[in-house]
């Protein structure tokens, strides 16, 4: 177990962060280069003002018409994404690992709050799964990869939750938790989880087109 622990905590963690950061940079650069090579005109339409206007509107719950039309989904999706990003970043045990390895530390969530957020993320995954299966227009455009990325996102939280509460086989869950977190990190640039990277750009572009050219709202 010591070897395994040392492996997932050491080289594999390096690899996961490397793939995540390097891969993300690669994907973003590749996209920007593609813009540069073939759609340079996009630069001339980009506007900070309208990009931010659009991004902020779509980051504010219920600020867009479609969010008001799908109230439950809006609540779930905001809670889910907040939990998905904030919980791992602000979790005490994670920050301690950073401090032990790098001497870096920052404010952390009380474990009880993090626990609730974890449950919210897991429940959110469940909601998305049910929605995918039950809503015809979602089911129609669902492919196997959609279930895979949902599982990739859910796994670190399910294993983390079980490990935190020390239910079932603790040691195995602990290792699985680290492993699934690393899989998720590495998967972000190379699956459609990359919407995390690209969404600000697609949003900014549409915001700029709507604001600068079309003089209309895009929310």
């Amino acid at each position: 177990m010591h070897d395994l622990y040392a492996f997932v905590r050491g080289p594999l963690a390096w690899a996961a962060f490397g793939v995540f950061i390097g891969g993300s940079l690669y994907r973003l650069l590749h996209l920007l280069m593609l813009v540069h090579r073939k759609e340079k005109f996009i630069y001339s339409y980009m506007s900070w003002k309208y990009s931010l206007r659009s991004i902020l509107h779509w980051m504010t719950p219920f600020a867009a018409v479609n969010m008001r039309m799908n109230r439950v989904l809006t609540v779930v999706t905001f809670a889910f994404h907040l939990g998905l990003i904030l919980t791992p970043v602000l979790l005490l045990s994670h920050v301690l690992l950073w401090e032990e390895s790098w001497g870096l530390s920052w404010w952390t969530l009380p474990d009880g709050v993090a626990d609730v957020m974890t449950v919210i993320v897991i429940a959110g995954c469940g909601y998305f799964l049910v929605r995918r299966l039950a809503q015809p227009e979602v089911r129609y455009v669902t492919s196997a990869s959609d279930y895979v990325i949902l599982a990739i996102a859910a796994a670190p939280f399910v294993t983390g939750f079980l490990a935190y509460h020390q239910w079932f086989a603790y040691e195995i869950l602990f290792i699985l938790h680290i492993l699934s977190g690393e899989i998720m990190l590495a998967a972000i640039p190379f699956t459609r989880l990359s919407h995390m990277l690209f969404a600000p750009f697609t949003r900014a572009y549409m915001g700029s087109e709507f604001g600068g050219v079309r003089h209309a709202r895009d929310w």
Partner: peptide, 30 residues
């Protein structure tokens, strides 16, 4: 900090010796 001191003291040695608990819940047992 005290937390880090404890962790380094215990876990650091356990990792070196390849013996003893190293995962959070192996020591902090509910």
């Amino acid at each position: 900090s005290l937390t880090i001191a404890f962790h380094t003291n215990c876990k650091g040695c356990h990792l070196e010796q390849q013996k003893g608990p190293v995962m959070c819940g192996q020591c902090h047992v509910w």
